[in-house]
Structure formats: C-alpha cells, structure tokens
Design a protein around this nucleic acid. Structure first.
Length: 501
RNA sequence: GUGCCGUUAGCUCAGGUGGUAGAGCAUCUGACUUUUAAUCAGAGGGUCGCAGGUUCGAGUCCUGCACGGCACACCA
C-alpha cells in the first residue's frame, strides 16, 4: 500500500505474515492431486457424453477433484472470484464463492498473488459460458511467488530476457512450450528410427585426450588428479567407429558436442549431434537412411512431410536430388576446383568473386566459401551434395574410379546444411597419410586441421569393416521443422554473455 | 571481429525540431455472485542501460563502454 513499496516487497510482506501465522508455504513437501487440468476437462466432457441429449445437473453430477498449478489470472467480482490455474497439461478455470469457500478462507484466497503455486479441491462443472471450471471448497498455498510475472496478453517479448530467463518465456509464451514439445517428439522419433533397425544407442566420452571427427577448434579443460588437459569433444565419430571395430555393427549416439567458434543464429558453442554407423553399408545406404529419418522426424513433429521455411515450400518426400559439389560450384560461380591444385591457383581463380579477404584462405577454404556463397543458399528442396574432394575429407573412403574424390555427401534443406555422411575410410595406411596431411595443414596455420590420432589408427589396424556413417545437426533440423530461423529458439538455454554485475 | 539498429515503470510500448517523462496490463484502494485481455472509479510506481561531454537546460545531440538483435566475416 505505501507508495515506496514495490510489488516484490508487498509479496515478501505477505509471505512473512504467513510464516508468522505458522502457515509457511515452503514447509509443504508434496501435494496429491487427482487430476491434471486436462484430465478435469476430459472428465467433464466424458460426463456430458454420458448424459447424451439431457441437460446436466452439475450440482448432482459434477465430481470432486484436486488439482495444482500456478495462478495465472484473477477476475475478482466481489463475492465471486474467477481465476485461471495453469499446469503442465493446460489450464482450468477456478470459481471461488463465499458459500462454498467460506469466511476466512475466502479472504485468504483474495490475498493470493498471480504467480502463486496453489493446490485446490472442489466441484468440477461447466459454466453457462461453456468454460470447464472447478468451484473451490478448499485451497492451499504450495509456493509463494515473490516476483510479478510478465504481462499476460503480449507475453514476454524481450529476447534477451527470454533467453536468460527461459522459465519466464515458457510461462508467458505458449508457442515456446510448443516448440520444445516438438523438439522432444523429434528426439523420440530419431531413437525410434534407429532402435527399430537394431542400432544400439551408446554413450562415448565427452572429455577426450585428443579431439577429432570434425574440423573445429575445441574447448580445453583440465583434470586435476591426472594432471592433464582434456578436450571437450567436437564429435563422437572416432569413438563410435572404435565400437564398430569392436563388433557393434550398428551404433548411434545423440549427444552434445562443443566447438569453440563464433556464436550466431546458426551456431551455439554446444549443440546436439546425432551420429550413426552401420557396418557393411556405404554412403548410398546413408542417403536412404537420411531420407527415411527426416520423413519420420517430420511426421512426428508436424504430422506431414511438407512444411514452409522462410517462405519456401519444402517437401521431404524421399528421393532427394543429388548434386556434385564441384559441378555445382562451377555452374554457380564459374570456378572449376578440379582444375586447380595449389592455394595460389585457387586464389587467382576466385579473384573476381565476392568472397571478402582471401589472403588467409587455402584451396579448401576457398572451395567452402564459393559453395557457401553461391550454391548452398539455393539448395532449398532436400538435396544431397556428393563427390567431395579427398583433401577436405580426411575420414572418408575414396571413390574407386575417381580416387581424388570420396564417397561422401552432405544433405541440404532450406539452404542449410543439416548433416554429413560418408563411406568410412577403413584403410589404416591411407588414414595415416590423411592424418599426416592434416598435421601439415595444422602446422601451416589451419586452426581447424584434424590432429593425428595414433590410438584411433591402432583400432583401425585391427580391422574396421566397410561402414557407412552419418551425422546430423539435431538443432538445425528442429529449426527447419518448427519454422524457427534462430538456433536459440530451439535450445532451451543458449549461450550468452553474462549480464553486467 | 566489423557495420547498422536497439536498451524508457514489473511486462508490452509511446515519447517531431533539446524545455517539469506517458499509456495499457500488473500493483494498491473502493464497487460488483457467470467472468475468461472481466468491467467501473480512484491512487502509487522511473538512476530513461552505464560513464563522460556539449548546453542555461539532455530520454532526445556527441564520445566511450556494457548487453542484445540483424547483416557480413569466421565457422558446419
């Protein structure tokens, strides 16, 4: 009431008074409910169905229920109060009247604040206006909310607060809850796909003595007892292939990987990757796998293979287009990398393109730039880009008829790369040479060069069967299927700079 | 990393050319027994992101910094 008190102080004051009356809500450990809000609604509908054409006398055929949740709205009419209670399943309206919730209890309900967690018991019915409702006979405060919630009509708009305090975003914005529910469905669909084909789900180390399996800069951490630095994995690939050496013929892992690189709408330092390996299969099998997997995920998330992304209508029907990487680049910007061998030649050939500063770029970097600038944005319908040069693919098997290329593809949807797959290189002699070439690139200044991994080579020397492998950026696929254009919208707690203290 | 834009009440947002900081929701007081963005009457609430500068006077102009967004660069 006094003007210098803000809403937090008012609420703390109420809590203090409750404690002084021996009614500390934080003393409560559990609360048994008979229904969720959705179950109350369903039970009301069931009662109506049972009654058929006859009008229901809710006084007689309503039922007792106990529900719990967060008080999200209050419409006080004096002797009668309407309120909305939200729980994980949805919401249910509450009706508080003096003749059912008598005397002091009625006044106590009025002391509640929006945001409080309460448990209620009462009589379920449907109002004249058609709203499923519980008329309270008693209630209990289960947790006091000390801070005011965001405004109900506009929700929470400030993106910075939405990411930093995602719980408020989830409370205030139903469509955000929907996106993360879809994310869960997507992950279930992925597991269902692999489990149904006899793949074994495994967990491999996130802390690795040597990183590998992708081209990226790692995070470094330190183990005190071992007194050694460890890398957070940039990919699970090399461990999963060790498992294939060990006779696990079909394995997959869904897990977090960590890459010490820039943060933007398409990159978070930690993100969720799917990798799968299938012995006795090759990259064409992985193409079929991708088509089926994306179909299953889309059906789980959207119940439909067609969706719209950034204004493009996209169709995930299997039978995706295939495009040669080098041909596509040549068509799009006129540079034929198959005719270029040195870094200098590549820079010369790209001289007139809009690629920014090329002085630090080697052949592989320029290839990437040309592709990202001129080809990828146009790969809207699902497309497999195939026939990658061996020099940018240190872990993939060569094509027998064109040994400078490898049996590899990257799938693109909506102009975005969503994965990577190849026939796994299983020749330990060739693998050692590729690692050594990467090591030379590293010495020459390529910060993302793949390090030489003797332990992995040893495993391969025992014999890796011919194997097809695939990786997929789970977050990016979920972005596409939910229509989000920013990775942060599908990661619950995206990385941000700390707030100023 | 570079450029552009943003930061005003708990939340959502207004605030030409520099002149006492506004609204809606939320909060508080009062009225109201079928409301559901309830309604009606009234009230309180601000370090205008932070720090400097210009000016008689800065939310507004200038500089720096912080955080965020977008684009580019880097990068799956």
């Amino acid at each position: 009431m006094p003007s210098d008190e803000d809403q937090v102080r008012q609420r703390k004051q109420k809590l203090q008074e409750l404690k002084e009356q021996g009614q500390d809500p934080f003393d409560i450990h559990s609360f048994d409910r008979t229904h969720t809000s959705a179950q109350v609604v369903a039970a009301i509908e069931a009662a109506e169905t049972a009654a058929g054409d006859e009008d229901i006398d809710w006084q007689a055929s309503g039922f007792e229920t106990t529900v719990a949740g967060r008080l999200m709205a209050v419409r006080d009419q004096g002797k009668s109060i309407w309120a909305d209670l939200h729980d994980a399943s949805g919401k249910i309206q509450l009706w508080v009247t003096e003749n059912e919730l008598t005397g002091a209890a009625f006044e106590k309900f009025r002391e509640l604040d929006i945001g409080d967690i309460i448990g209620v018991r009462g009589h379920a019915f449907r109002t004249r206006r058609g709203e499923p409702t519980v008329q309270l006979s008693e209630f209990q405060l289960l947790a006091k909310s000390l801070r005011p919630l965001p405004e109900k009509f506009h929700g929470l708009q400030d993106v910075e607060i939405r990411y930093r305090r995602r719980y408020l975003d989830l409370l205030a914005n139903p469509q955000v809850r929907e996106v993360f529910a879809k994310r869960t469905e997507a992950l279930k669909a992925i597991r269902s796909y692999f489990d149904g084909r006899d793949f074994q789900e495994v967990s491999t180390p996130m802390m690795q003595p040597l990183y590998g399996g992708a081209n990226a800069r790692p995070f470094i951490t330190h183990h005190n007892t071992l007194d050694m630095d460890l890398y957070l994995r940039i990919a699970p690939e090399l461990y999963l292939k060790r498992l294939v050496v060990g006779g696990m013929e079909r394995v997959y892992e869904i897990g977090r990987v960590f890459r010490n690189e820039g943060i933007d709408a398409l990159h978070n330092p930690e993100f969720t990757i799917l990798e799968g390996y299938q012995a006795y299969a090759d990259y064409t099998d992985m193409m079929a796998l991708f088509e089926e997997l994306l179909r299953d995920i889309a059906l789980a998330v959207n119940r439909c293979l067609q969706f719209t992304y950034r204004g493009h209508d996209i169709d995930l029907e299997p039978g995706w287009e295939r495009k040669s990487l080098l041909d596509a680049i040549k068509e799009a910007c006129g540079v034929d990398f198959s005719q270029l061998s040195t870094d200098e030649e590549a820079r010369e050939a790209c001289r007139d393109l809009e690629l920014g500063d090329m002085t630090q770029d080697n052949w592989a970097a320029l290839l990437d730039k040309c592709f990202d600038r001129y080809v990828a944005p146009n790969l809207i319908q699902p497309t497999f880009v195939i026939d990658y040069p061996v020099r940018v693919s240190p872990l993939a098997k060569r094509l027998p008829d064109r040994p400078h290329l490898v049996a590899r593809f990257e799938p693109f949807i909506g102009g975005e790369e969503i994965g990577n797959a190849f026939s796994e290189l299983n020749d330990p002699v060739d693998q050692r040479e590729r690692f050594e070439a990467q090591a030379r690139a590293g010495l020459a200044g390529d910060a993302e060069a793949h390090p030489l991994d003797e332990d992995y080579l040893m495993a391969m020397e025992y014999g890796l069967p011919p194997t097809g492998g695939m990786g997929m950026g789970v977050d990016r696929v979920i972005m596409l299927l939910t229509g989000c254009t920013n990775l942060r919208e599908v990661i619950l707690f995206p990385q941000l700079r700390p707030e100023e203290s």
